[in-house]
Design a protein around this nucleic acid. Structure first.
Lengths: 227, 227
DNA sequence: CTCCGACAAATTGCATGCAATAAATAACAA
DNA sequence: TTGTTATTTATTGCATGCAATTTGTCGGAG
């Protein structure tokens, strides 16, 4: 449940290894289905098998890799069916965050959300993909935090991480930036006025549309992890 | 995500240990705040420290225990504030499951839910606490399954486990059984007729009332878990 | 030619030993 | 007496070796 919140400077090798391996997977260096041999990883990272084992367990808990008792671990290769399940879950959780944010965001949080949203409008108008993508992460993170519920925001963060490799190019679709900002607008307006039900629905719709955008891209360039 | 939670007959010692320790915690044998000494546990369960370590990591991932890098692990003692956060999260997730169940339950699942609900009505009328409590677990599990989303039902199951020690006596309050059944009734009716929004609201209300019932009991017998 | 079984190789799970670090205590100075 | 520091101790993190189990291959029988 707690991947890491304020985890005390993961000084342990296992923690660092988990991060390294996760990055390698998310970056596509380790393709889905790749076998994660303990000895091999130990040699590759210059440590013994023990921290590798712990790192693998940790990653298995997040669902990033798939480990069965005596049969080793492999990069969990996500089927399109599972991917849809993940997107649906992500949508529901984000919608829940928006719902809670509408109820319990502090005035300061609302001001900051509004300010970020306006800035993103300008970014979208100038069609600056990279800048918008970065701000987008901040936007959603702000919604998670606004829920003022550590358990749910942890869940949301975990899901976001798992989906991150599939969201790389989500703003490539033509006109997606302004569309995204428009969808955000509905969410922000509802949150600011404290309309929980509408915030929920608006966020659900937004994430569903993100999923659609992904699927269109996926058809063009089927995912070989090399994203 | 993980196709199976009840992993392949946890043949490994670490898996079994994780279960044993979790049971000990949930049963109250290990009080919140208790230090979980690796060597001690290893001796107690007659194994070496290695599987104990892995079991502790596993439990830390579920939030049941709290492990910091060089400072060992201890039974995470839940503050009342965190407990409220957990209850809120549980409510939101369960409500989401109900929402999805209303949308995507198969006809067979709906029939079974209805049948169980009717049986529970009779049990409640006869005021059979233990039987009702067991059926209640099945009821909620059925809602999770009805969401037809493995990711979300996994999350719900995890939260339920974390909260289970605090729900033991939830049906002790006088008249709670028939009240519970009435709340279920609203959920079931909405789910059966495919009314997602109402199912969401009804389940949210139900879980909130469960939380209230808990808090009343908690005032009578405080857990000294607070801090 | 196919299928079944035994054997061999590789890999994981577990135990144990050592090193590193944090908590606890004792000693010393102000 | 109290505050600071050095030492001691206990516990975790890591490395390595061995045992158990799985998988792939080879041989033989049908």
């Amino acid at each position: 449940m707690r991947p890491e919140m304020t985890d005390t400077k993961g000084i342990t090798r296992a923690e660092r290894l988990a991060g390294e391996i996760a990055d390698a997977i998310l970056a596509g260096d380790l393709a889905p289905g790749s076998r994660l041999d303990e000895a091999g990883l130990a040699a590759r990272y210059g440590v013994s098998r023990t921290p590798v084992r712990e790192a693998l367990r940790q990653l298995a808990a997040t669902g990033l890799i798939d480990a069965k008792p005596r049969r080793g671990a492999s990069v969990s290769h996500v089927t399109s069916r599972q991917l849809e399940t993940l997107f649906v879950a992500m949508g529901e959780i984000e919608a829940t965050c928006a719902r809670l944010a509408a109820i319990s965001m502090t005035p300061i949080e609302r001001r900051r959300l509004e300010a970020l949203h306006e800035r993103m409008g300008e970014t979208a108008a100038r069609n600056e993909e990279a800048v918008y993508a970065e701000a987008n992460v901040a936007f959603h993170t702000m919604i998670y935090a606004g829920a003022n519920n550590a358990v749910i925001s942890d869940i949301a963060t975990g899901l976001r991480r798992r989906l991150s490799p599939f969201r790389r190019a989500q703003f490539r679709a033509p006109g997606r930036l302004t569309l995204s900002h428009g969808e955000h607008d509905a969410v922000v307006k509802a949150v600011l006025r404290g309309d929980a039900a509408t915030a929920h629905a608006a966020m659900l719709r937004h994430v569903s549309l993100v999923e659609d955008a992904f699927e269109q891209l996926a058809q063009v360039a089927p995912h070989r992890a090399g994203g």
